[in-house]
């Protein structure tokens, strides 16, 4: 048994899985950058080999249920602690059980992995709506700060939707950007100290949107707690409609005394997407 250390790429992780089967059994897989030596096992840094990773991935496609490879990739993009071991355990089980795997959500290996991949799926769904572009003249720019590393998953959706535009989606937490130049989408490290300054036209559309957002609310149904379930506060600093200037000391926060407890668990059904 040995601890494998990898370079934090998906291919690197799959290369470790390959080593588990063809070299020495893995006790665990860890990011090389953060590894603290273990007393129980030796450790070895694995050099990423894309052809080995491909063999593992293709075997997963051949031998496991249709959605399993995607679930594994999504779990890899999550920020779940020790996700590498969750994936390793799941892959081992997936190869052993084959097509009957997904039926067993209550197995600890499956539950752990599906919880991680579900989180990424949920956040991806949210961000199809939560990306806010600003027109910078020559391109559209959006800053996002998602919990999980979903940037790559946004590419297909937005490059189809905004095919005729140029855009950049900037993950400010991870210093990465997704760029679409009208022909191809790619990811690149990107960092910017100062926020971009939109022009007057852009600010006008932002104000129109903020006014719209304000006026579409039915005052008699005010329910900030329900609103916060769907638009958690941590996302709001990047959402144009929550950036209204001159809204008093507390901005958009409503104090809880305004809130009528009758509304507590109700109203979800209206939001059917």
């Amino acid at each position: 048994m040995i601890d494998y250390l990898y370079d934090e790429t998906f291919d690197g992780l799959l290369t470790c899985v390959f080593a588990h089967y063809y070299e020495e059994k893995a006790a665990g897989v860890y990011p090389e950058r953060l590894y603290q030596p273990s007393l129980l096992h030796g450790a070895r840094a694995v050099v990423t080999q894309p052809e080995r990773a491909d063999r593992v991935y293709e075997a997963l496609i051949r031998k496991t249920p249709r959605l399993t490879p995607r679930k594994i990739y999504y779990a890899f993009l999550s920020e779940t602690p020790r996700k590498e071991n969750i994936i390793l355990n799941y892959v081992i089980l997936a190869f052993r059980r084959g097509p009957r795997l997904t039926a067993c959500r209550s197995l600890p290996e499956v539950l752990a992995l599906e919880t991680a991949s579900d989180r990424v799926d949920t956040e991806l769904g949210r961000f199809l709506g939560f990306v806010r572009f600003q027109d910078m003249g020559r391109f559209l720019y959006a800053a996002i700060a998602p919990d999980h590393n979903i940037l790559a998953l946004l590419a297909d959706h937005f490059s189809d939707r905004l095919a005729g535009e140029n855009f950049m989606i900037h993950d400010t937490g991870r210093d990465m950007a997704l760029i679409w130049n009208g022909q191809e989408a790619f990811q690149t490290p990107f960092r910017r100290a100062e926020p971009l300054r939109p022009g007057e036209d852009e600010r006008r559309f932002q104000t129109l949107w903020q006014e719209y957002f304000e006026h579409i609310t039915i005052g008699e149904r005010r329910n900030p707690r329900l609103q916060a379930q769907f638009t958690p506060r941590r996302y709001r600093s990047r959402l144009t409609e929550f950036q209204r200037p001159n809204k008093g000391l507390f901005g958009n926060k409503q104090s809880l005394t305004e809130y009528d407890s009758v509304h507590d668990d109700i109203g979800h059904e209206i939001n059917d997407g």
């Binding site: 769904g125 199809l128 709506g129 939560f130 959706h157 189809d160 939707r161 905004l162 095919a163 005729g164 535009e165 957002f213 579409i216 609310t217 039915i218 005052g219 149904r221 005010r222 329910n223 900030p224 707690r225 329900l226 609103q227 379930q229 769907f230 638009t231 959402l239 409609e241 958009n252 409503q254 509304h263 109203g267 209206i270 939001n271 059917d272 997407g273």
Partner: peptide
Amino acid sequence: RRNGGGLGNAKGYGVCHTWAADGRCVA
């Protein structure tokens, strides 16, 4: 529906973009 050479597409499951202060979604 995919973008057929202009602007936009549509997702069968629908996408919500934000939620107003009454908790109703804005799509």
